[in-house]
């Protein structure tokens, strides 16, 4: 299986080529979480996650709500 490298939450990470954002959520263990997904500074809405394929060197952030004042 050919791999590509992306930056996930600031860390270089290898994922299978052709992975969608939805696939990445599963790989990252975030598929059952309410997460926001940002790819190269663009917010990827839930309806678009299966159709959005990740590319080499994409910058991906997965974000959740933590405690804060």
């Amino acid at each position: 299986m050919k791999m590509i490298t992306i930056t996930l939450n600031g860390e270089r990470t290898g994922i299978p080529e052709g992975s969608s954002v939805l696939d990445l959520l599963s790989i990252a263990g975030a598929d059952r979480k309410q997460v926001a997904v940002v790819v190269n500074e663009t917010i990827i809405r839930p309806a678009d996650r299966s159709a959005t394929t990740l590319k080499e060197n994409d910058q991906v952030d997965l974000l959740v709500f933590a405690g804060g004042g």
Binding site: G10, A28, V35, A36, L63, V64, F65, A66, G68
Partner: peptide, 8 residues
């Protein structure tokens, strides 16, 4: 709430 990176 505060926005933070997901950490499994």
């Amino acid at each position: 709430v505060a926005l933070r990176r997901f950490n499994r």
